Computed example of a mutant assay.
Amino acid sequence: MREGLIPMLLGVAVTGAALTARALDIKKRGIEKDEIAPMIATGLIGFGLAHIVLGGIDLIQER
């Protein structure tokens, strides 16, 4: 298995789950500034995107 593929797939999964949770939350009741859940979802999106980028870099460097 190519190096970088697992982090990239992990990033896709985490980002997708966080975006889904955030979209459902926004659709359900909008965004309120004092809630912690939107901040956690945003952090998870960033975490997932970082894995996608780092995994992609590993895949490109391996060639």
Rank of each mutant, 00 (worst) to 15 (best):
D25Q: 13
M39G: 07
L9H: 05
R22V: 03
A23G: 05
L19P: 00
I40S: 06
M39Y: 14
L54F: 13
A18G: 01
E62L: 07
I40Q: 06
R29M: 10
E35F: 06
I26Y: 11
R2I: 14
M1L: 12
I6K: 10
A41I: 03
M1Y: 10
F47R: 00
D25V: 01
L59R: 00
G56F: 00
G55V: 04
L5W: 11
E35D: 15
L24P: 02
I52M: 13
I57M: 04
I40K: 10
A18F: 00
P38H: 05
A37I: 12
A18Q: 00
A23I: 11
G30R: 04
E62K: 08
A50E: 03
L59H: 00
L24G: 09
I36M: 13
I60L: 11
A23K: 11
K28Y: 12
I6H: 09
G55W: 01
G43M: 11
T20A: 14
L44M: 14
G4T: 04
T20E: 15
R29K: 15
A50T: 14
M39V: 15
E35P: 01
L59A: 04
L9G: 03
F47S: 04
E32V: 05
D34V: 04
A50N: 06
I52H: 01
D34K: 08
L49F: 10
A17C: 11
V12P: 01
A17V: 08
I36D: 10
I6A: 13
M8N: 10
L19E: 09
R29T: 13
G48M: 02
G56D: 02
R29P: 01
L59F: 03
D58H: 06
E62D: 12
G48Y: 00
A21N: 09
H51F: 14
A37F: 14
L5C: 03
D34P: 01
L19S: 09
K33Q: 15
G48R: 00
I57H: 01
I6G: 00
L54Q: 10
I40F: 09
L59S: 02
L24E: 15
E3L: 11
H51N: 14
K33R: 15
I45T: 12
A17H: 09
R63S: 11
M8K: 13
L49K: 00
E32L: 06
I31A: 08
A17W: 09
L44E: 04
T20I: 13
D34F: 08
G55H: 02
Q61I: 13
R22K: 11
V53K: 05
D25S: 14
M1P: 09
E3Q: 11
A13Q: 09
A17Q: 12
G43I: 05
G11E: 01
E62H: 06
G30T: 06
M1E: 13
D34I: 05
G4Y: 04
G46W: 03
L10G: 01
T42W: 08
